[in-house]
């Protein structure tokens, strides 16, 4: 059971990320606009969008069921539970009961389950196809994630995310090549999970009318957009927490936490900057050829595994 201070840290962490998520997605919009040499909206535009949507009526198709109605709540709740378990400000996981890599992977699977099911539940065929693609991407991505994380966990000796971070930051992993390759493969898998171009399969705006989001409106749409923004933030935070733990606090001191917060914010901005550059330079990949891309990831992860096995 976590101590009270850890518990407070976890809750503060979750709420902070929840509050900041629309800012991050606003930042992405801003960076895209700049790369298109437009003036673009302000980085707070997403907050205004959410506020506007909250005042609109909630429409739903006649055949939509309860899953469609409750998916936004489930999605956000799960994302915040994940947020309590990731090691972001600190080296260790605030609530270690949620901080196991397998738990985090399967909590993301919970989100994917309900997200896709709501696509089918809405009764719209666009949403259904989007759901099918979302699940397919999950099938292609999860093995890469699991293999990369497993290699890192084997190097660190535990599947707890905090422990992996501690091992990497203190340099006790005995195979730097394996760690680097695992980090690379994991980053690739997470990029696909982010759902940004070129892997914007599920919510392909031009092809699928936003996929599972098609039929949402009003406050439900606001929550779903918030959830998607939070998911992207958390995915990047996951990568930072596991493979880039440098600068985060090693124990629960006030200055340590402030230092960890600053380091985290800097890393987040840098990574989102890199992502913005990548996503605005490419077009969407052809869905049928996505497995070829994911095989690359599998290859990199397997190479990391081989390096670990032979002890390079």
């Amino acid at each position: 059971m976590p101590t009270l201070s850890h518990f407070l840290l976890a809750v503060v962490q979750a709420l902070a990320l929840f509050a900041v998520a629309p800012l991050i997605s606003g930042l992405s919009r801003f960076e895209r606009a700049k790369m298109h040499t437009r003036r673009g909206p302000s980085i707070f535009q997403d907050y205004r969008d959410i506020y506007k949507l909250l005042r609109r009526q909630d429409l739903a198709p006649g055949e939509a069921g309860r899953i469609f109605q409750f998916m936004p709540v489930v999605m956000l709740a799960t994302l915040m539970v994940i947020a309590t378990g990731l090691p972001m400000l600190t080296r260790f996981t605030p609530i270690s009961a949620v901080g196991d890599l397998i738990t985090v992977v399967y909590l993301f699977a919970l989100i994917r389950f309900f997200f896709s099911l709501s696509g089918l539940d809405s009764g719209s065929s666009f949403a259904g196809i989007g759901a099918s693609r979302e699940l397919t991407m999950g099938v292609l991505v999860e093995p890469i994630m699991m293999l990369a994380l497993f290699v890192a966990a084997l190097l660190a000796g535990s599947t707890n995310l905090g422990e992996i971070g501690i091992a990497i930051s203190s340099g006790t992993v005995h195979s730097a090549a394996a760690t680097l390759l695992a980090a690379g493969a994991f980053a690739f898998a997470l990029y696909i999970e982010l759902g940004k171009l070129p892997y914007d399969m599920a919510e392909a705006e031009q092809e699928l009318q936003e996929g599972p989001l098609t039929e949402y409106s009003g406050p439900s749409l606001a929550l779903v957009k918030w959830g998607l923004a939070l998911k992207q933030t958390l995915v990047v935070g996951w990568f930072i927490g596991v493979f880039l733990p440098f600068g985060s606090a090693t124990e629960m001191s006030f200055f340590g936490l402030i230092g960890g917060l600053i380091a985290f914010v800097i890393k987040l901005f840098v990574i989102f900057g890199v992502i913005a550059v990548i996503e605005n330079s490419v077009a969407r990949a052809r869905f049928r050829l996505t497995p070829q891309h994911s095989w690359l990831g599998v290859g990199a992860a397997s190479l990391a595994f081989v390096f670990y096995l032979v002890g390079l």
């Binding site: 055949e63 069921g65 899953i67 992977v105 399967y106 699977a109 994917r112 389950f113 896709s116 099911l117 696509g119 089918l120 539940d121 009764g123 259904g128 759901a131 699940l135 397919t136 999950g138 099938v139 991505v141 999860e142 093995p143 994630m145 699991m146 293999l147």
Partner: peptide
Amino acid sequence: ALTGALAVMCFVKAYGVIFSGP
């Protein structure tokens, strides 16, 4: 892990096709 992801897909399909939609 692969099995888990495929099972998610399969049961979303099963529940969705049987209980949801028209």
